[in-house]
């Protein structure tokens, strides 16, 4: 199987984020591999390992695909040290500030050229939080959409895949033939820590960097930020110690606020 995993470098979840000229200011913020993509990398590796592994000479490969600045190579290196085989990084100043529509178009144009069986994504990036790229990929590629997977079962011989889709609407079992776009929720697995061996091996793995020039993608802006303003921080409020009347104090407070 040829499996692709879409990964993104994002500012650390704990970092204070600011907007600068309508874009997330990424300078001076610690950048990490998007947490939720680790689950996608892990799931791709598990699928490969359950069917002969992804070592050289085996029939499976796990390729990372990322769009981002050149320093995104650091985040990609982490996913390589988990065990992915190789990576493609699409990096171009023309893509800075790209939204989900452009991102999905760029990723789809790379995926189209490579004949993957499965593309696996996290459910969202922790910075933009739109949660739409996997569905947009399915639309652009005309592939089966198997998103919000809480479990994935692959049958490489039958070229079929079954997932359970876990959302607020309930749990659905969904099946499709290859090729398919899968996104995985963070309940699906426990991502491995890169081993020392994995880290050493990752240093030798290739990250192929491409510009946007050769891509069959139409890069344009689909929406404009009019303005972005910091909101006043939520001031810490009243804090009472429960000396036996904490519940009563709470009700008095809620009554004052007309909430009970």
């Amino acid at each position: 199987m040829k499996i692709a995993v879409c990964v993104k470098q994002v500012p650390d979840s704990w970092a204070e984020k600011k907007m600068n000229s309508g874009r997330l200011d990424r300078e001076g913020v610690d950048a990490v591999l998007n947490d939720l993509d680790e689950y996608a990398v892990e799931e791709a590796l598990r699928i490969a390992e359950a069917h002969g592994g992804n070592e050289e000479g085996s029939s499976n490969t796990v390729t990372l695909i990322s769009m981002g600045p050149e320093r995104a190579a650091e985040a990609i290196r982490k996913a390589l040290s988990m065990g992915a085989n190789n990576a493609i990084l699409i990096s171009d100043v023309a893509l800075a500030g790209a939204d989900a529509l452009t991102t999905s178009e760029v990723l789809a144009s790379v995926i189209k050229a490579e004949a993957f069986d499965l593309v696996i994504c996290g459910t969202e990036s922790t910075d933009a939080r739109m949660s739409v790229v996997p569905a947009m990929l399915a639309e652009r590629l005309s592939w089966a959409q198997l998103t919000f997977a809480g479990s994935v079962k692959v049958n490489p011989d039958a070229k079929s895949v079954e997932i359970t889709r876990v959302t607020e609407s309930g749990v659905d079992t969904i099946t499709a033939q290859f090729p398919a776009v899968i996104s995985v929720i963070e309940k699906i697995n426990e991502p491995r820590y890169p081993s020392f061996k994995g880290i050493m091996a990752a240093k030798k793995k290739s990250i192929e960097t491409r510009s946007a020039a050769g891509l069959a993608a139409n890069i344009s802006a689909w929406s404009d930020v009019v303005d972005a303003t910091p909101r006043p921080a939520r001031g810490a409020g009243i804090k009472v110690e429960d000396g036996g009347t904490g519940g009563d104090a709470l009700i008095t407070y809620l009554a004052e606020k007309k909430l009970v």
Binding site: R234, A236, G237, I238, K239, V240, E241, D242, G244, T245, G246, G247, D248, A249, L250, I251, Y253, A255, V260
Partner: peptide, 27 residues
Amino acid sequence: IFEVADFGVVGDLFAVLPQASEGIKAR
């Protein structure tokens, strides 16, 4: 959580919540 709370009770939820529930019933 207290950094974003408008009202915080430092205490055991198993004591605070039942008392609050009784308070609502009484009201």
